[in-house]
């Protein structure tokens, strides 16, 4: 046992296990169907909202693009969002109409898009008391990404809420704020939001540290 108050406080704490890339074959572990493998009874995947879930049903899609402008075809993403009423539902249960957590991946085929089937999230309060604009938290894992990248997806048609959002306002460059705003599209009467994530270079997506 160490004598109290004899060592620097930082030495009384453990270090976090170091991160490593999820690698090119992340799918076999976390996205089994994308690897071409059989799935188990219950998998964590991209249908966050079932048809009976409360709220506006939307699809959220996008690509991941590298610094050369090429598609990143082996990216794996995780989503975390509030329900339509602005409440997080931490208890993951496939029997529930809505889950706050979802997973998706880009694909090895032509368009290489990730997608989430969900509902538009409600507003969540920031600790400063102000409401944050509706958003989906995204984590991006891939070969060549040593520590997963964290970003947020906001919605184009929430311009007023976006303008007031205390987190978007943390981004000094107004130009860069635009990299988080998903564009609204309607495909066959279905509402779809698109956000292409640029890992590097011109139009580079804002990534957060928290």
């Amino acid at each position: 046992m160490k004598q109290p108050n004899t060592v620097p406080a930082s030495e009384l704490m453990l270090r976090e296990t170091a991160s490593q890339t999820a690698g090119p074959y992340v799918h076999i572990g976390l996205a089994l169907a994308a690897a071409g493998n059989p799935t188990r009874d219950e998998e964590i995947w991209n249908e966050m909202a079932k048809p009976e879930a409360e709220g506006e049903h939307i699809e959220v899609v996008g690509t991941v693009i590298d610094g050369n402008g090429d598609l990143v075809r082996d990216a794996f993403l995780e989503a975390w969002q509030a329900d339509a009423n602005g409440a997080y539902q931490p208890e993951y249960d496939l029997k529930k109409p809505f889950n706050s957590f979802g997973r998706t991946a880009t694909t090895f085929d032509h368009g290489s898009e990730w997608s989430l089937k969900t509902v538009k999230p409600g507003q969540v309060a920031h600790p400063n008391g102000q409401p944050m604009a509706p958003h989906i938290n995204l984590a991006i894992f891939a070969r060549g990404v040593n520590v997963h990248l964290q970003t947020r997806l906001y919605f184009e048609d929430e311009a007023d809420a976006n303008a007031e959002c205390p987190v978007l306002s943390r981004i000094e460059s107004p130009t860069r704020r635009q990299t988080l705003i998903a564009k609204r599209e309607e495909i066959d009467g279905k509402v779809c939001y698109r956000l292409d994530i640029k890992l590097q270079g011109e139009g580079e997506t804002v990534f957060f540290d928290f």
């Binding site: 590298d66 610094g67 050369n68 090429d70 990143v72 975390w80 509030a82 997080y88 969540v124 309060a125 920031h126 600790p127 400063n128 944050m132 958003h135 938290n137 891939a142 070969r143 060549g144 990404v145 990248l149 947020r152 987190v167 943390r170 981004i171 860069r176 890992l199 590097q200 270079g201 580079e204 997506t205 804002v206 990534f207 957060f208 540290d209 928290f210």
Partner: peptide, 18 residues
């Protein structure tokens, strides 16, 4: 080399429920 952001990460300063 081509998959690393060049811009600095934006620090949240104060984490929210999210």
């Amino acid at each position: 080399v081509a998959r690393s952001p060049q811009q600095a990460l934006v620090s949240m300063q104060q984490a929210s429920t999210s």
